[in-house]
Structures are given as structure tokens and as C-alpha cells.
């Protein structure tokens, strides 16, 4: 697609939350259409939710997107990207990466997906290092304590 640059939002778009009133409009529309809600309305609400700062709203957004993915095969390709974004926002980087790679497998030249891949890698590396540092610290303490105990036991013997 020539206009693929416009067709998908960048991850940065997802970082800017909508105003409460704007989200309320989308929610009202979504709830107003009831059982036979249209795909666009559903997506609008889901997208608004994913942009939110609140985790519960983000989760609901991902759920709606999952529904869209299941119900509208013709929308799957873009939906997989929004799912990746949603999971990225939620911090579920494994899923985010998985979905993003699926899209990249289909469209290797997709700029949005490429940038998301970079973002996910960064996040994982940073949080991973942080986690390893913590685990490392815990392990260190454990070793020290353990060795101390061991020494104590040895001394007792």
C-alpha cells in the first residue's frame, strides 16, 4: 500500500491519552450501538482505551481488539498491529513482539511495525537489565547469607 504510512499510527500516537470527555463520547457511541456494534465504532472505542493511561482501560481495549480480530478476518492484518501496540502499552512484551513479528512477516517494509519492534527491544533490554540486577542482588545476598550459614555450620563442626 502506497499510503501505508498513513494507514497505521505510530507507537507514539498510542502514548497520548484522549481526554476523558472524548473517551466518553466513544464509549457512548459504542454502548449505543449495543449488540450490533459496527467494527469502526468498536475499534474507535478500543483505540481510545488503549491510548489511556489506566491499565484496566488498556486491558479492555486489548479485549475489544481481540474480538475484532476474531470477528472480522478482513481486519486482522491491521488488528494484529493494534494488538501489538496494546500489549506493548500493557507491558506484555512477549505478546507485543509476537504480534508485531507476525505483521512484519506479512509487511517487512512496514515502518510503524519496525519502529515498534525497536521500542519493544529497548523496553525489554532496559527492564530486563533492571530485573537481572535485582535478581543478581538477591542472589548475591543469598550467597553471602548462605556462605555465612555454611561457615557457621562448618565452624560448629
Amino acid at each position: 500500500m502506497a499510503s501505508s504510512a498513513d494507514r497505521l499510527p505510530y507507537a507514539a500516537d498510542a502514548e497520548s491519552p484522549l481526554k476523558e470527555a472524548e473517551l466518553a463520547v466513544l464509549r457512548k457511541q459504542y454502548e449505543g450501538e449495543g449488540q450490533f456494534v459496527g467494527v469502526q465504532t468498536k475499534f474507535n472505542y478500543a483505540w481510545g482505551l488503549i491510548k489511556s493511561d489506566k491499565r484496566a482501560e488498556q486491558q479492555l481495549g486489548v479485549r475489544l481488539l481481540t474480538d475484532i480480530f476474531k470477528d472480522y478476518p478482513e481486519r486482522r492484518r491491521e488488528c494484529v498491529y493494534y494488538l501489538a501496540l496494546g500489549h506493548y502499552r500493557l507491558g506484555n512484551y512477549a505478546e507485543a513482539r509476537q504480534y508485531n513479528e507476525i505483521l512484519l512477516g506479512k509487511e517487512p517494509g512496514n515502518l510503524q511495525a519496525q519502529s515498534l519492534r525497536g521500542l519493544i527491544d529497548d523496553k525489554v533490554a532496559r527492564e530486563g537489565l533492571l530485573g537481572v540486577a535485582i535478581i543478581g542482588g538477591v542472589a548475591m545476598v543469598a550467597t553471602i547469607v548462605g556462605s555465612a550459614i555454611w561457615k557457621g555450620v562448618a565452624k560448629k563442626r
Binding site: P9, Q40, N44, P73, E74, R75, R77, E78, V80
Partner: peptide, 14 residues
């Protein structure tokens, strides 16, 4: 995931 694309993306619709 089917290949055919819709005429507009959901984001554009949004």
C-alpha cells in the same frame, strides 16, 4: 490473516 486490504484502515476511520 487474509491478504486483502480494506479501502481504509481502522485508524483512518478513527
Amino acid at each position: 490473516i487474509p491478504d486483502q486490504e480494506s479501502q481504509y484502515s481502522l485508524f483512518q476511520g478513527f
